Simulated assay, not measured.
Amino acid sequence: MIVAISITVFILYLILYVVHEGLPFLNLDFFTQPPTALGDPGGGVVTAVIGSLLIVGTATLIGAPLGLLTGIYLAEFGNGSLAMVIRFLVDSLAGLPTIIVGLFVWVLVVVPAHSFSGLAGALALAIIMIPLMTRTTEEVIRLVPTELRHASAALGATPTQTMLRVILPAARNGLLTGLFLAIARVAGETAPLLMTAIGSPFLNTNLALPMDALPLRIFTFTLSPYAYQIHQAYAGSLVLLGLVILASLLIRWVLRRTLPGQL
């Protein structure tokens, strides 16, 4: 009980401290203006917000389907040696330090292309997202009652039709929860992006070029010797914190709308 109370108090103190330091600097310019030169007051993080949306969105389009398909395979057909190897690789990937993932993508993508890019950052985040989606998908699909599979097969449905029309709809809410968690997990990653997207002070929507992101902008502001930009780092941290809280609220909303018999 004492440990739980201590952790709760520490987390609340951390949140309140970030709110105190960053909230006064959250204004319209913060979300609509690019960052200023080092030492100049004003500016904002519009380049980082747009970059984060593009990078995380692209990572989701790549990582979520791959994790979903891998999880379906492991849940429905994963009884052989191949499935054992895949589970081992997924578990190893889930425990891998994210900076190693960034280094991996840097070697395979950045070095051959001779350029950092938002796409490289998206690939790094997608790799981080895959094991999260895989494990969630496998566990959720395993919770779907076997009777639903048997009933679908008795009506003449093929295994593919059973998966698409029975199992996935039954597991929909659990899959959405896993997706929100995976997005929230990768949205705040900094180390992989330092080695792939690297950041940029200019507004850029081309994934083939270096691209800014909110964690990278926070990192840059934190290194600044000027108090104004350090406060902007707190403001950016507050935005990220708000996104994580929003994701948690969405998860709770999805779970509350779960119908009896759904996951």
Rank of each mutant, 00 (worst) to 15 (best):
M1K: 12
I7E: 06
V9H: 00
L14D: 11
V19I: 15
V19F: 10
E21R: 00
P24N: 07
L28E: 02
L28V: 11
L28P: 00
L28M: 05
F30W: 13
F31A: 03
T32P: 09
Q33H: 11
P34I: 11
T36W: 02
T36R: 12
A37Y: 09
G39Q: 02
D40K: 04
D40M: 07
D40C: 00
G42V: 10
G43W: 00
V45L: 08
V46K: 10
T47M: 11
T47V: 15
A48I: 11
L54P: 01
V56P: 02
G57D: 08
A59G: 01
L61S: 04
G63F: 01
L66E: 02
L68R: 07
L68P: 03
Y73M: 09
L74K: 01
L74Q: 02
L74N: 04
E76M: 15
E76C: 14
N79M: 09
G80W: 07
L82D: 07
M84H: 10
V85H: 02
F88T: 13
F88R: 08
S92K: 01
P97V: 05
G102Q: 09
V107K: 15
V109M: 13
V110G: 06
P112K: 10
A113C: 04
A113W: 08
A113K: 13
A113T: 03
H114Q: 15
A120I: 11
A122G: 02
A126L: 14
L132M: 15
M133L: 11
T134H: 01
R135S: 12
I141A: 10
R142D: 11
R142F: 09
R142T: 08
R142C: 10
A154M: 04
L155R: 13
M163R: 05
M163F: 10
M163W: 00
R165W: 06
P169N: 06
A170K: 03
A170C: 15
T177N: 08
L179V: 09
F180P: 00
A184R: 05
E189T: 09
L194R: 07
I198G: 03
G199S: 04
G199Q: 08
L207G: 13
D212I: 06
A213F: 06
R217S: 02
R217F: 00
T220M: 13
F221M: 13
T222R: 07
L223D: 13
Y226P: 01
A227N: 06
I230A: 05
L240D: 03
G242T: 11
L243R: 04
L250C: 14
W253R: 15
L255K: 13
L263E: 13
